[in-house]
Simulated scan of single mutants.
Amino acid sequence: MNASDFEGVFPAITTKMDAAEDVDIQAVRADVRFQIDAGVDGVIVCGSLGEASSLNADEKVAIAEAAVAEAAGGSPIIMTIAEDSTRAAIDLVRRVEKAGVNGLMVLPAMRYLSDPRETMGYFRTIAANTELPIILYNNPVAYTVDLLPEHFQQLADEKKFVAVKESSADTRRINQIIDLVGDRYKLLIGVDDLALESLVLGCVGWIAGLVVAFPRETVAIYRLVREGRVAEAMEIYRWFLPLLSLDIGPKFVQKIKLAEHAVRGTSPVVRAPRYPLVGDEEAQALAIIKRGLENRPDLTKYGF
């Protein structure tokens, strides 16, 4: 991948499970095909939405292989690295590099709450053990570990760090990073319900969640903003916002898989310790999804 390849819409796909909570590899391939056919610019596998924390390394490699095979070189496949230790991360990086993935999205090591020195050292160690381009993922809201704009400035000398997924929910950081390092990184927004604002402020890509159920609407918003048609993008975005709220909170995987099931008929099964939604939580999510489907915009109005 070239740096320019890190622009556009990148769905972080869910990992489909069968009734026994085993990974459904054919469904993984179907998801990749569904997204590519809808016009996305690349596909991210085994992220937080992909239930990375409950997948073992062999499953992650199998998912990577399936996604690469389905894409067949037509769209880049990016593997999420979200392991508990530096050693485990390096081992997985080496395995998925052999599987043919095109890039990596790297989270700070899980469980241990590293300080900035440790986090940056972790990122640099991974870069030293791969030839693949890397998206650095910053999400202090979910993972507590936080890298500030000045830390990304310190990391800018490593050429393999080509992009930053900025998910702090503080849109000020977009311009702060740009002020410090200009266009050194491709800035990608990773918070669905701050996407349009962040694209206007300078992000050139959107790593999205609800795209898994609504890829064409997501792509339309992105392209309209990039074309300067912000008012038209806002019309779709305001319809989308209640649905995008499903991407927030600890049960975002269950909610988004429920949305996919309602829209596409795919499996809503999640792997324990996650349980399916029940009661008011399920009813509220279904009401948002139902309303969204009833009022789904006609994209032909915007040329899509």
Rank of each mutant, 00 (worst) to 15 (best):
Gln154Pro: 00
Gln154Met: 12
Leu155Trp: 11
Leu155Arg: 06
Leu155Glu: 04
Leu155Cys: 04
Leu155His: 07
Leu155Asp: 01
Ala156Gln: 06
Ala156Met: 04
Asp157His: 14
Glu158Gln: 13
Glu158Ile: 09
Lys159Arg: 13
Phe161Lys: 03
Val162Asp: 03
Val162Asn: 05
Ala163Glu: 05
Val164Arg: 03
Val164Gly: 05
Val164Gln: 03
Lys165Pro: 11
Glu166Trp: 04
Ser168Ala: 10
Ser168Cys: 08
Ser168Glu: 06
Ala169Thr: 15
Ala169Asp: 06
Ala169Arg: 15
Ala169Met: 14
Asp170Gln: 15
Asp170Ser: 13
Asp170Pro: 06
Thr171Cys: 07
Thr171Pro: 06
Arg172Tyr: 10
Arg173Trp: 07
Arg173Glu: 02
Arg173Ala: 00
Ile174Pro: 03
Ile174Tyr: 02
Asn175Val: 08
Asn175Trp: 08
Gln176Met: 03
Gln176Leu: 00
Ile177Phe: 01
Ile178Trp: 02
Ile178Asn: 00
Asp179Asn: 12
Val181Ile: 12
Val181Tyr: 10
Val181Arg: 05
Val181Cys: 00
Gly182Leu: 05
Asp183Pro: 04
Asp183Lys: 10
Arg184Asn: 05
Tyr185Ile: 01
Tyr185Phe: 11
Tyr185Val: 01
Tyr185Arg: 02
Leu187Trp: 12
Leu188Thr: 13
Leu188Gly: 00
Ile189His: 05
Ile189Lys: 03
Ile189Glu: 09
Val191Thr: 10
Asp192His: 11
Asp193Gly: 00
Asp193Met: 10
Leu194Ala: 05
Leu196Arg: 15
Leu196Ser: 08
Glu197Asn: 11
Glu197Met: 13
Ser198Trp: 06
Leu199Trp: 05
Leu199Val: 03
Leu201Thr: 05
Leu201Ser: 01
Leu201Ile: 10
Gly202Ala: 07
Gly202Arg: 14
Gly202Ser: 07
Cys203Tyr: 02
Val204Trp: 01
Val204Pro: 00
Val204Asp: 00
Val204Ser: 08
Gly205Lys: 09
Ala208Leu: 09
Gly209Lys: 10
Gly209Leu: 12
Gly209Asn: 14
Leu210Trp: 07
Leu210Met: 14
Val211Ser: 00
Ala213Ser: 15
Phe214Ala: 06
Phe214Pro: 03
Phe214Leu: 15
Pro215His: 13
Pro215Ala: 12
Thr218Ile: 06
Thr218Pro: 02
Thr218Gln: 01
Val219Gln: 05
Val219Cys: 09
Ala220Asn: 06
Ala220Ser: 14
Ile221Trp: 06
Ile221Asn: 01
